[in-house]
Design a protein around this nucleic acid. Sequence first.
DNA 1: CATCGCCGTTCCTCTATATGCAACGAGCTT
DNA 2: AAGCTCGTTGCATATAGAGGAACGGCGATG
Lengths: 258, 258
Amino acid sequence: MPDKPAGESTLSSVKNSLRILNSFTNEEPEKRVIDLANELQLGKSTVSRLLSTLASEGFVTKDPETQKYRLGLRILTLNSIVIANLEVNKEARPILRNLVNETGEAAHIAVLENQEVVYTEQIECSHPVRILSYVGRRNPVHCTSSGKLLYAFLDRVAIVKLLQQELKAYTPNTITDPDILKKELMEIKQAEFCYSDCEFLQDVVSFAAPIRDYTGKVIAAISLVGPKHRILKHQHSTIKNKVIKAAKEISRNLGYMA
Amino acid sequence: MPDKPAGESTLSSVKNSLRILNSFTNEEPEKRVIDLANELQLGKSTVSRLLSTLASEGFVTKDPETQKYRLGLRILTLNSIVIANLEVNKEARPILRNLVNETGEAAHIAVLENQEVVYTEQIECSHPVRILSYVGRRNPVHCTSSGKLLYAFLDRVAIVKLLQQELKAYTPNTITDPDILKKELMEIKQAEFCYSDCEFLQDVVSFAAPIRDYTGKVIAAISLVGPKHRILKHQHSTIKNKVIKAAKEISRNLGYMA
DNA sequence: CATCGCCGTTCCTCTATATGCAACGAGCTT
DNA sequence: AAGCTCGTTGCATATAGAGGAACGGCGATG
């Protein structure tokens, strides 16, 4: 199968097993061998063997009745290790909680991975009306406050790479013009703050500020999210200040002296 | 490397990559290439390549400074899928919460995987003194209330297999005699209830009852855990009843008609 | 400041191994 | 009951992964 010139040298069977794991989603948490074979363009037997290897280590489980495979409990165990060792989160949690109490809206910690934003911590708000999210969720970068903010602090190369990609429109407000986005990224870096006005989800606004480690490097973002109709214009500056304050506090706890 | 007769046919490179993932623990969340090579008896170069493949899919991350590898954020994403699709947990959470409120002690949902108990849900108690646990934790079966309970409902073959293993003593109270354990398992099945008296952790007692799906099959256990000095003898029967009641309620929500 | 030693990565060769095909078998459907 | 779909297993072949060696980067040490 000498198809892909392979961006990096990579072990194909391992890669394929990971692709299988990655292919499960909330929408399709269960799959059959043949589904995976089609989806990933692999032979039935190959997928079958990959799955049984994955199953032998608990990464997937086979439903004994439906024969379908789903992600296994091993993931829970690995997750607890990841969570326990995310330094930022430990420091952030109480401050995040406080921010949520003060503002009444949900807050997150987010980091970049590849070209996506991953939320590593979430404190929900108490309103019955909530924006659905969860730890581990991945969102695009060009239309979320945390995404834009984190990208703003990356080097020129990374930004150019982002701008070359297609900027998919999720709402009428999504910024799809590379030049406009570039300009905004520069402003964000300057302001150390980002506001997103329904650019990803309809009627949802968000605010983000950078979290720095002791070297001053931006390692994560704190973001606050809520429905637009609940967060009125005149509250914006208060919220902005609170978010920035929280971000600074977390940074300070991580050893950043500014 | 034709060492292991290989219980089941298995893809070695995939298996090794999973062994790498599994080797990370809370105690050792970061490892170097050479550590892994020694630990898993593989060549440096092999481990290096496995790791970079794992990294390319986000399953591990390399700390750019220390060169050490740790589990990656992809795990968080997979975890959210696992969690969202654990039927039992959805039904159990509110009931668990209620149980914790009534008793003041922590409660868990547990299932079996291989020869271990895995906790899939946890509600902590509000006491400052807590038994440390977390979702994803794996405990031995022969000395925990949920482990013994779940094993009690397995078939003869599985029980025999368990009894053949060495029953490691974690405390003076741990049951290490296969015959005694066998007898107790039968009693547990009869009583649909299990009590564990400091058999795994010193000064920690726990209570467990079975959760059944609509077919009547025992698919999980509910367990309540607390420090022995706080849970007095005269409270035992009340707690037992509450735990059993909670388990029945969850089972009912899963469609089990007793 | 230079040398040494450690560790991660890359290169190369060889063989073990993962793949695809085909056949088998189990479970549903009609 | 027969026919279908789908998952697993066996087998032969080509390939891709393992291991050894060498390189290169980094930090320690004298």
